[in-house]
């Protein structure tokens, strides 16, 4: 189940750029429109593009289904653990325990419009990355399940 050589080459060339764009959307979630869900969906579309071009078998040898399943579980666990750490610190569940502390992601931000700084917003970037990992694993594994039995029409 292969597409033509042109489609395969274009998919190979554009895959890294889709990956980088999705990662940009995830990491800049607290500064620009977007976030974990949207960026993870963009990365998943890159994987689906590879599957559409090369077929499920060839892609599943490189990006295995177990890897994507583990990514999904790891993302959800990282999300919940980040929220639970606040309880250990004596605050409420889902408290932003890193914001305005001066540590990682802890730079205070001035009121009003501004260009923004990546090193702000406390736990929000961590949760964005966690949700991004989870969504990219989840959407890709759903399409893996659906396309694993697909065959070329005769």
């Amino acid at each position: 189940m292969n597409m033509s050589r042109i489609v395969r080459t274009v998919a190979d060339i554009s895959f890294p750029f889709i990956l980088i764009y999705g990662f940009y959307i995830v990491v800049h979630g607290h500064l620009t429109p977007g976030g974990g869900f949207q960026g993870g969906a963009v990365i998943a579309t890159g994987i689906v593009l590879l599957v559409a071009a090369h077929g499920h078998e060839a892609v599943a040898r490189q990006i295995t289904g177990n890897l994507l399943k583990n990514a999904e579980t790891f993302g959800l666990l990282l999300f919940i653990i980040t929220a639970l750490i606040a309880i250990l610190l004596g605050q409420g569940f889902f408290t932003n325990w890193l914001a305005n502390t001066g540590m990682l992601f802890g730079t205070p931000v001035a009121f009003g419009p501004g260009p923004g700084d990546l090193n702000t917003a406390g736990v929000i970037p961590i949760m964005n990355i966690a949700v991004g990992i989870e969504v990219l694993g989840a959407l890709s594994i759903i399409l893996y399940y659906m396309l694993s039995g697909a065959q070329e029409a005769r």
Binding site: G29, H30, L31, T32, P33, G35, F37, G75, L76, F79, I80, A83, F93, F94, N96, A99, N100, F105, G106, T107, P108, V109, A110, F111, G112, G114, G116, T120, A121, G122, V123, I124, M127, N128, V131, E134
Partner: peptide
Amino acid sequence: QEQTGANNIVTGIVFDYRGFDTLGEAT
């Protein structure tokens, strides 16, 4: 902005003020 430190207030609400909602979405 001062409470969450995020310039994007939508993300600040979704991931901070309404974190339970996002946890539900992920689940």
